[in-house]
């Protein structure tokens, strides 16, 4: 589905991506985790065609991304800026469907169905600024769902909501995406989250970013906020990802703790 080889990007002389290679298979949810400022967002923007990387190759569905692909959707962290305040929730969800060539009525139906799936069946007539942060991010997710992208990119999608809402949204994404068999690349700096939602976790190094590990998450398809996080496998993976994200410094700490 998505095949990235030796992706390199520099802003001026500052190198951000230093040969990132990864792949995402159809129907997979891959989380990409790395330290803050390591180039995660640059990676996502390159895949989305929003910036042109300095080097390397991105294949989406076998075709190189040389302009903006028309079959992907992005959910950004900052829902308040990503939703259009002059439109109701339903119209926000329906807008991208113009690219699908649907008429007004079909767009409206698809938008209402998507809002229903994220639990906002009654909020279609509300404006984003009349909603809580969690509700707004649900609208963003519904907008991406309604578009039926072959690849859904999520950039720290739960980074701006409170802990309870965050768990709700994680489960919502897992549920809805399993239902649609969607392919997702989710970027996060939250180690727990990367393991909890992912089928695979790709760990990036400190900037300039390279892939330091590609871990399979063997936690089964259905996850539970309490039970899953208690599993030995979860605890083991979380520790491993944590060590990788922190780089060499963790090993030193562990040694000290043992003494």
């Amino acid at each position: 589905m998505l095949e990235i080889t030796e992706l390199v990007h520099s802003y001026g002389s500052h190198r951000v991506l230093d040969g990132v290679s990864l792949s995402v298979a159809e129907g997979e949810l891959v989380s990409v985790v790395g330290p803050s400022g390591c180039g995660k967002s640059t990676l996502l923007r390159s895949i989305a065609g929003l910036i042109r990387p300095s080097g390397g190759q991105i294949l989406l569905g076998g075709r190189p991304v040389d302009q903006i692909p028309d079959n992907l959707a992005i959910v950004f962290q900052d829902y308040s800026r990503s939703l259009f305040p002059w439109m109701t929730a339903a119209n926000n969800v329906a807008l991208p469907l113009r690219r699908r060539g649907l008429d007004r009525r079909r767009r409206r139906e698809a938008a209402m169905a998507a809002l229903d799936q994220v639990g906002l069946a009654d909020a279609g007539g509300k404006y984003p600024w009349e909603m809580s942060g969690g509700m707004q991010q649900r609208v963003s997710i519904a907008r991406a769902l309604a578009y039926r992208p072959s690849l859904l990119l999520m950039d720290e999608p739960f980074g701006s909501v409170d802990a309870q809402t965050r768990e709700d949204l994680e489960d919502l994404v897992l549920r809805v995406c399993a239902h649609h068999g969607m392919t997702i690349l989710l970027i996060t700096h939250d180690i727990d989250e990367s393991v909890y939602v992912g089928d695979r976790v790709i760990v990036l190094t400190r900037s300039p970013a390279r892939v330091s590990a590609d871990l399979k998450v063997d936690l089964g398809a259905s996850r539970d906020q309490i039970a899953t996080r208690q599993l030995d496998e979860f605890v083991r993976l979380r520790a491993e990802v944590g060590r990788l994200v922190r780089g060499g410094s963790t090993t030193a700490t562990t040694v000290l703790e043992q003494h």
Partner: peptide, 24 residues
């Protein structure tokens, strides 16, 4: 810029982004 990127990300061209995001 994020509002513009949102629409660009869905594959809308510069004129659409101008009309649907920048103007409003």
């Amino acid at each position: 810029p994020l509002a513009k990127e949102t629409l660009r990300g869905f594959g809308f061209g510069p004129m659409s982004v101008l009309a649907r995001v920048a103007l409003p």
